[in-house]
Design a protein around this nucleic acid. Structure first.
Ligand code: ZN
Ligand code: ZN
Ligand code: ZN
Ligand code: ZN
Lengths: 134, 134
DNA sequence: AGTTAAATTGTTATAATATAACATTTTGTA
DNA sequence: TACAAAATGTTATATTATAACAATTTAACT
């Protein structure tokens, strides 16, 4: 059992915003949205984001410089993340597939490196966007 | 057989620099290094980088905002990339493992999305850095 | 309760990464 | 030659992220 992590005020404000967003949010869009709640400076946002990423409540979509709430209750520390990204509508979904995570967690390359973390991003077209085009 | 892609002047200058670098290069470090060769503005660098990525001569390491030459002769279009990144010395290596690429290329999640591209980044400690710490 | 260290916050300034907009030139091809 | 596509040059600006420093809050331990 992981110890419950109490979020600080800024962390909670920013997590709530990201958590209720249907799409990944960018840092300055977050800043704009929380200014009415007293968070005025980029650093306040980035510090909260850093912490939330560290404890696994959110993940950064590296190819988009955007942040999404963890959609996988068992992934409390973000050491093994996988996402699908629609290149048409930009919908992002966290992939929760135990075969995939087992395969990647145990993956060993010939270079002798010891991996403790990975991030995987798949790109393509989501169902909706496929049907729109046909 | 893929048609040979002749690089333009700026593309060639920037590719040569990246190709001979032992480590991923960042855009503004590239800019600094090619100023003596007549490339003066960020856009000139970014345009060449975009093209080089598009044709698969280089890849972007998304978590580092840096660019590395393709180390895999068969990967001429960057639709399936995997890298190992040492979090201590920042050494980056392109992984060329046919099991891995087969597994990921044929991976299907339950969400019905059709993937045409992926990018995977592994993080850990390289051999050298492991032995330094012991 | 008082002491202390760690975490968080607040604030201003600045660094680093990337694109918009527009004009011109070069290259490939009919 | 004529045309279109690709590449270049240039200035300005947008976007993403961190440095540096001071103050405050929180948590843990006597
Ligand atoms: Zn997650
Ligand atoms: Zn879509
Ligand atoms: Zn490659
Ligand atoms: Zn290393």
């Amino acid at each position: 059992m992981r110890k419950m992590q109490n979020l600080s005020k800024n962390q909670q404000i920013i997590f709530d915003l990201i958590d209720k967003s249907p799409e990944p949010l960018k840092a300055y869009s977050i800043l704009f949205n929380v200014q009415k709640r007293g968070i005025k400076a980029p650093l306040q946002v980035y510090r909260a984001l850093d912490k939330l990423v560290e404890i696994g409540k959110i993940h950064k979509i590296e190819s988009r410089n955007a942040f999404i709430a963890c959609q996988n209750s068992s992934c409390q520390i973000s050491k093994a993340t996988a996402f699908s990204i629609c290149e048409s509508c930009e919908k992002v979904t966290e992939i929760n597939n135990s075969n995939l995570s087992k395969y990647l967690t145990s993956f060993k390359d010939k270079n002798g490196m010891k991996y403790n973390k990975y991030n995987l991003e798949f790109f393509g077209l989501c169902k909706k966007c496929i049907s729109k085009k046909s």
